[in-house]
Amino acid sequence: MSTDDLEADLTRNTENAPRELLTRSFFFLCAALSVVTTLSIVGLLITEASKFFSLTAPLMGVAGETANLVDFLTGTTWQIHSKEFGVMALISATLMVTFGSAIIALPLGVATAIYLSEYASPQARSLLKPALEILAGVPTVVYGFFALIYITPALRVVFPDIGTFNMLSASIVVGIMIIPMVASISEDAMSAVPDELRQAGYGMGATKFDVSTGIVVPAALSGIFSSFILALSRAIGETMAVTVAAGAQAKFLNPLNPASYLEGALPMTAAMVQLLTGDITGGGLAYRSLFAIGLVLFVITLIMNIISDFVARRYREVY
């Protein structure tokens, strides 16, 4: 090869060749699409919600009925017809479903993960894993009907005066729904724990129980916490099951009072479905309240995501 050829060859600039540029732009556009979509949704939520509040509506050039921001955030009555928009009534119901489903799904999910990761034979795993995946794939409206026609009648045996729509059955069914999420993410975290740590434990004379609970679970804690947060976010955002099972009557209930769970209430997501399917008119106050609820829901899940990120960073073990 002559010196000229070498010079030409070394300065070809393959990085900016047309084909490279084209593919790079294509991949960038695909990646940008999700960012643009997210930003548009957030933008829409914020602009529409700000038309709802008397504080911000003038800035948006909206005249007519508005709601007070403080009343919205602290009010405990949600009554569209009497123009009472107290979102705490909806938040309390969402909290109940989240709290109730967590009590069911977190322990069961982690126990399932421990079994799958540490105890299960390959045959047992090959049965259980697909079963969990099917559980995760059932349409959520089916869970709602399952709660309504199966769980609630079963609960009535124990609690005769439980309502047809009640938070307990909604919590149970959402709990069942998020078990696969807790189990599968936790199991991934446990399987990622290096085998050397288990060997160290067994070499010390640890039992399988000692190794699972004393070594594997603590080492996988950041992943397990992440699974909790993601599952709880899912419970907060879950819509169809609670719309069917929890009821349509907004009511402020104390999430920490067990008796509350026998009553029905209206979680935020179900309230939004109700607003969308009802005969509200576009541009009205009730219509805009939809976006105000949506914004609150978005902020809550955003906070959950931030917590999840923080927890994952804080407790991540580097082996």
Binding site: P194, E196, L197, Q199, A200, G201, Y202, G203, M204, G205, G214, I215, P218, A219, E317, Y319
Partner: peptide
């Protein structure tokens, strides 16, 4: 048996716990 026969492995494998807790684990 393994409580009578200690083992040290090829790759150092301390538990992701404190130095103190590693020693008292057994």
């Amino acid at each position: 048996l393994r409580r009578r026969v200690g083992m040290v492995f090829q790759k150092p494998n301390p538990f992701p716990k404190s130095i103190y807790d590693n020693v008292v684990y057994g």
